[in-house]
Computed example of a mutant assay.
Amino acid sequence: MREIYIYCCLLPALSTVKMKSLSKNGNVGENVTFTCSNWDGLGKPQKRVKYLCKAPCEDKDVIMKVKPEETKNKDRIKLKNTGGSLVVTFFNLQKSDAKKYYCGMERAVWDLYIEVNLKVTQGPRPKPTPVITKFSPSPAVLSSSTMSSNDTETTTEECTSSPNSSSTIPPVSATHGSGGSLYFIAVVTVMVALLLMAALVLYRIIARKPPKIVSSARDPRDDSVEVQ
């Protein structure tokens, strides 16, 4: 009886020595999944409760337990007990997730474990996304361009509606105070002044020209013929 008792006490130690070990690497911000399966020991793993714990895997270190064919989520960790294996997923990895974990399977005498070493690295930094900015003119620029376009349209309408616009000065509206209308009035005024000056110069040239004198004297030969 004493030898049997000693053998039973040594079984957990032998199981611990044969414990499987997994290593998993991931970058910050990524999702990592690993599967704990092929449990060592006797029994049917399909009917066993499985769990995930942090080292040293005492009762306070257990994160979650799942029954066969059950799925649970806690914080950024998901456990799925498929029966023969335990699927563990870490979402949005953080530096604090890098530590030693154990996949455990409950047994009547002692639990079976698979050691998991999770390493988290910073990884390459993502390239910055180029920002495209759209140009939006200020209200002052919009109002200035609108007034200029309105003045141009009004001037065009006045020119097309009056056939004698070259000889008459269009009335200045009280609302037309922009540079476009003043420029048009100045151009028309200069044109009219040039026309008047040209007409005045032409008139003076014509007035100074001497008149043609038509002679009425007869040929002396005609007088000699009459005397004979």
Rank of each mutant, 00 (worst) to 15 (best):
M1R: 11
M1E: 11
E3Y: 09
E3W: 07
I4M: 10
I4D: 10
Y7T: 13
C8L: 14
L11H: 10
L11F: 12
P12V: 09
L14H: 14
S15V: 04
V17T: 04
K20S: 04
S21A: 06
G26L: 11
N27C: 06
G29L: 03
S37D: 12
N38R: 12
K44C: 09
Q46K: 09
K47E: 05
Y51Q: 05
L52Q: 04
C53K: 03
D59H: 06
D59G: 03
D59I: 01
K60I: 05
K60C: 02
M64I: 00
K67V: 00
K74I: 01
D75P: 00
R76Y: 04
I77Q: 06
K80I: 05
K80N: 13
N81Q: 10
T82F: 08
G83T: 13
V88W: 07
L93A: 11
L93T: 14
K95G: 11
K99Q: 13
K100N: 02
Y102A: 01
Y102P: 02
R107A: 00
A108S: 07
A108G: 07
W110V: 08
D111M: 01
I114H: 00
E115I: 00
N117Q: 05
N117E: 04
N117T: 02
L118C: 00
V120F: 00
Q122M: 10
G123E: 07
P124Q: 04
P124V: 02
R125Q: 11
P126Q: 03
T129F: 06
T129K: 13
V131E: 06
T133F: 07
S136N: 11
S136A: 07
P137D: 14
P137S: 09
S138C: 10
S138G: 14
A140F: 04
V141F: 15
S143R: 12
S144P: 09
D151T: 10
T152G: 05
T155Y: 15
T156K: 14
E157H: 12
E158R: 15
E158L: 15
S162V: 03
P163R: 10
I169W: 11
P170W: 00
V172Y: 10
A174Y: 10
A174R: 06
A174M: 04
G177V: 12
G177K: 12
I185S: 11
V190N: 08
M191G: 15
A193Y: 14
L195G: 08
V201D: 10
Y203P: 06
I205N: 11
I206H: 15
R208N: 10
K209F: 09
P211N: 02
K212N: 04
I213P: 05
S215K: 01
P220F: 00
E226W: 15
Q228S: 09
